[in-house]
């Protein structure tokens, strides 16, 4: 009889179990990195990191700390699997993306290990949904080796100030050029599209600027098509930290506050566009 909904008690050994009383806390973070169908999940006792990559040039990570969950246990040092993120998101939002006030979807998530599906048990208003999502061999991930000690320039902005800019990026431009400098123009976003160029300048004393630590003038270009998906994270976030290292690698860290006031992070790393010579700048 298919009506039993509970996972068979005890007996089964899950390497990963997690429960969350509001599945939306998870789904909204995952949506912030959902620009490719597939994601790699990496769980340790600290929480889960969900990684999505594209074109060997961009990597997005959503970090869901163990504290976000009401219950979280990982039986091995680390657990890794690859999963179809679109499917996972459809399952997590099976009861809708915006639940009625006062209701939320409770989630229990279990994984038995390599070769097994990821099990989701979702409940809202007495209705239970059970999902079995097949998992795949994890991908080898890019290592951006971006460490805070090698950061050359760093700016923290209120996300509000970047939202419109990213929403209106001139997509006929191949690149987004980011200039960070201790002197004018301080922080500048530029595009070079079919119809000309556009520059967006943020003064260092702007109220949007939460922190400004620029040590040297750096101008780097990034493929605009790769950065565009980060708009999703930007939309959810309250603050964004923009950092570059000496090679021009870019880190965008988005601070996201969920409805319960908990803080989570989504991070995008992006390689500079190498096709451009200094002369062109």
């Amino acid at each position: 009889m298919p009506f039993s909904t509970q996972p068979s008690a005890s007996g089964e050994q899950y390497v990963l179990t997690a429960s969350l009383d509001n599945a939306r806390h998870l789904s909204s973070l995952l949506r912030a990195v959902h620009f490719q169908d597939h994601a790699t999940c990496f769980a340790t006792a600290n929480g889960i990191r969900v990684t999505v990559e594209d074109a060997k040039c961009i990597q997005a990570n959503a970090f869901i700390q163990a504290e976000i969950f009401q219950e979280f246990s990982v039986q091995e040092e680390s657990v890794t699997f690859r999963i179809n993120l679109s499917v996972l998101l459809d399952c997590l939002t099976i009861f809708g993306t915006s639940s009625l006030p006062g209701t939320s979807t409770a989630l229990r998530m279990c994984y038995r290990g390599y070769g097994y599906p990821l099990m989701l048990f979702l409940e809202e208003g007495g209705v239970v949904t059970v999902c079995k999502i097949n998992t795949q061999e994890p991908d080898e991930l890019l290592d951006f080796d971006f460490c805070s000690t090698k950061v050359v320039n760093k700016i923290i902005l209120q996300s509000e100030g970047l939202r419109e800019a990213f929403a209106e990026l001139d997509m006929t431009s191949e690149v987004l050029q980011i200039t960070m400098s201790p002197d004018k123009p301080y922080f500048r976003l530029s595009t070079f599209g079919n119809a000309g160029s556009a520059h967006l300048d943020y003064p260092r004393d702007s109220d949007l600027m939460e922190a400004f630590h620029c040590n040297q003038t750096q101008t780097n270009r990034y493929k605009i098509s790769l950065l565009k998906p980060s708009t999703k994270a930007l939309a959810l976030s309250c603050k964004v930290s923009i950092r570059t290292d000496a090679q021009g690698f870019l880190s965008l860290q988005y601070m996201i506050r969920n409805e319960d006031g908990q803080i989570c992070f989504v991070e995008y790393y992006c390689c500079p566009d190498e096709d451009i010579t200094e002369a062109e700048l």
């Binding site: 298919p2 009506f3 909904t5 179809n84 499917v87 399952c91 099976i94 209705v127 239970v128 949904t129 059970v130 999902c131 079995k132 999502i133 097949n134």
Partner: peptide
Amino acid sequence: DLVSVTTH
């Protein structure tokens, strides 16, 4: 092939 979902 990818997923099975049942809502009760």
